[in-house]
């Protein structure tokens, strides 16, 4: 096969070293990590309280859930041109795409996690004389925390995809941008190198989140 279609591992390795040495790799990666961190955090700080509200209040659930469910099915990719119109091609637009791709999913997953709090634990809180606020903080949030953490971990994985989508279309830095450049100049070794780096970054963050979750929710691990 022509190395144009599939570069040899050696070529990829060499490209990796070059990119590392000329500093581009680090600049690209840090631009991307910054975007994903900001976009994901923005989505998370909004989705956690809203998801909890939807999961605990049937009235808010009835008002918001159908809307969010609907928005969730709108293809985020189709919004890329619009987001450029709204937010330009700077970091703001990347945040927006990542936010759109994760926020709605997060809200629904978190609401679901909260709803899974066993009725018996809430009854227990009531019989102990706790008020609604105390039941929320002492029982519901503690009980759904592992599931909420899982929701964040899964959506962070998706956020990587949205990051690349945003960077492929309009960017002047970032891992996705470098892939576009590679495409333009037929540098398949660059494309493969960056695809692999994206995969590794995604995997590392996921494993990190898993390990952190296992630490925080150690009590959950069954010894049975």
């Amino acid at each position: 096969m022509s190395p144009l279609f599939l570069p040899s591992p050696v070529a990829v390795g060499e490209r990796f070293v070059t990119q590392l040495q000329n500093g581009e790799l680090l600049t690209d990666a840090s631009a991307s990590v910054y975007r994903i961190a900001a976009g994901f955090l923005l989505a998370t700080v909004m989705a956690v309280p809203i998801g909890i509200l939807i999961g605990t209040s049937t009235r808010i659930e009835a008002a918001l859930e159908p809307l969010i469910d609907f928005v969730r099915y709108m293809p985020v990719v189709a919004f890329v041109p619009l987001t450029i119109l709204w937010a330009g091609i700077d970091d703001g637009q990347k945040f927006l795409i990542i936010w759109m791709g994760t926020f709605f999913q997060q809200v629904l997953l978190i609401a679901d996690a909260v709803r899974q709090t066993p009725r018996s634990l809430i009854d227990l809180g009531e019989t102990l004389g706790l008020g609604n606020g105390q039941i929320l903080t002492r029982i519901v949030l503690r009980s759904s925390a592992p599931r909420i953490w899982d929701a964040l971990r899964i959506t962070l994985g998706w956020a990587w995809t949205w990051l690349v989508v945003a960077e492929l279309v309009a960017a002047s830095s970032g891992l996705g941008y470098r892939i576009t450049l590679g495409q333009r100049y037929f540098q398949t070794d660059t494309i493969i190198t960056y695809v692999l780096i994206l995969g590794v970054l995604g995997l590392v963050t996921d494993q990190f989140m898993r390990a952190w979750g296992r630490r925080m929710f150690r009590y959950e691990r069954t010894s049975r």
Partner: peptide, 11 residues
């Protein structure tokens, strides 16, 4: 109240 199921807080 002691419920039928086990209602300990797992954490």
């Amino acid at each position: 109240v002691v419920f039928q199921g086990f209602t300990l807080l797992p954490w």
